[in-house]
């Protein structure tokens, strides 16, 4: 089962913010993490991550810096800002609300009468 395109797009921001909340990271590692955690069922077109990252940076939720990796390659790392932590909390409560609502609707109600 693959997740629909719309849902992938909608969840991109909370996914990125959540991963960065665990520590600074760069594009390739972020995508790899999403793939690993979702068991490969959340398929992104890899390149589409970057415009989202740049938009979040413009919004002031994350910031970037360049660092040379152990292999000698220069990588652009992203770090969560205070504003981003707040935004993540907001996303979390919204997703939990959706999750709880759906769960209650889908739960089989016992028939008492």
């Amino acid at each position: 089962m693959a997740v629909s395109k719309d849902l992938v797009a909608a969840s991109a921001t909370p996914l990125i913010l959540s991963i960065l909340a665990d520590g600074d990271s760069y594009g390739y590692a972020i995508i790899k993490r999403v793939k690993d955690v979702s068991g490969g069922r959340m398929e992104w077109t890899d390149g589409m991550l970057y415009p989202v990252l740049h938009r979040l940076e413009k919004q002031g939720l994350i910031e970037s810096y360049v660092q040379t990796s152990e292999t000698g390659r220069r990588r652009k790392y992203y770090r969560l800002k205070r504003q981003g932590t707040k935004a993540l909390a907001e996303h979390k409560s919204q997703w939990m609300l959706v999750h709880n609502t759906l769960q209650q609707l889908w739960e089989r109600k016992p028939c008492l009468t």
């Binding site: 760069y26 594009g27 390739y28 390149g47 970057y50 740049h54 220069r74 652009k76």
Partner: peptide
């Protein structure tokens, strides 16, 4: 942007 994509 291109440098970042190339790194990926």
């Amino acid at each position: 942007d291109i440098n970042e994509l190339e790194s990926h």
